[in-house]
Design a protein around this nucleic acid. Sequence first.
DNA 1: TAACTGGGTTCCAGATCGGAACGAGTATGG
DNA 2: CCATACTCGTTCCGATCTGGAACCCAGTTA
Lengths: 172, 172
Amino acid sequence: MRWDDIDKQICSVARALSVVGERWTMLILRDAFLGTRRFDQFQSNLGITRHRLSERLGKLVDQGVLVKVPYHDRPLRHEYRLTRKGLGLYPVLMSLARWGDEWMDKGEGAPLEYIHQRCGHMTRPTLTCSECAEPLRPEEVRPRLGPALQDPNLPPQQASLKKIPSLSKPAG
Amino acid sequence: MRWDDIDKQICSVARALSVVGERWTMLILRDAFLGTRRFDQFQSNLGITRHRLSERLGKLVDQGVLVKVPYHDRPLRHEYRLTRKGLGLYPVLMSLARWGDEWMDKGEGAPLEYIHQRCGHMTRPTLTCSECAEPLRPEEVRPRLGPALQDPNLPPQQASLKKIPSLSKPAG
DNA sequence: TAACTGGGTTCCAGATCGGAACGAGTATGG
DNA sequence: CCATACTCGTTCCGATCTGGAACCCAGTTA
């Protein structure tokens, strides 16, 4: 299968990655969450080439993750802002950052810390259950078929997805 | 900057992406969390080429995200299991999946649902504050410099990172 | 002996990337 | 009026990465 076809998979992770799974895209969004909005700011913060940046920003705008908002006429200039769809990626980025802090640390500690202004404390973002508020641990979560996979006439290449193996103990 | 150099950035997101940011890697891990362990299973589930799969699995093993565990001698066969470091990526994958469910739905509903066995309910994974347990909203979190960025003799190209703009209201 | 299975590796054409040069629209300085 | 500069891109080209198919190798079944 070609990478370009992953958005056709019946899998939310694959669909999400078809939007944010390319090189640089997540780093562009990280910068957007930290307040970067203009082409040149992105370019100098990231060290990405202009060509690639232009392409990625264009795709994010097409997908509704960013919007172009004019901030100056004559010459017409736009800045790129997160939409609600883009803001929805906050948990993904924070989870990535926390994993990087915990497992890719080079001994100097975390680059950034986060203050939760609502409670005033330094926070460690934690994924929890919406129903019981306990932290979600992979061994305690069991996937089951949702509406999209209960359709009896699935395309044949998706058939293997219907068998969900149960998650058992890992090594390490 | 070349993509291969992003692990040298003083940024946890960049470091995390240096391990899991390549094409297919997250989908391999999604399958691993659903119980896939053997080369051929990954290959047929994902539709990735053997060559690419071999390369990605090798890198994940090198990075300590997966381990090779023998399950058969004569001929020697290994399976790939998540380590604790790999299990640490669960919030990233669940956040991606939830974003895909919410924003990339094609009208048929979610492919998979998740039952939290501890409480017995269908869960919507939510990122919360470790201190006050409230859901983390980007407007309510303020980043500040951590230990790794307080060092006065930073490499010059990282200087721009020291200016953290505050997050203001998005459009959309 | 032949075909099959699991787990790869080799090869190559085509897609993607990074770096540098180029360009358009507008402002600034003299 | 002309040169220069700034912002936000686009074009071009050589290098790298990717996907598809073929090949390999150690056992195993028939």
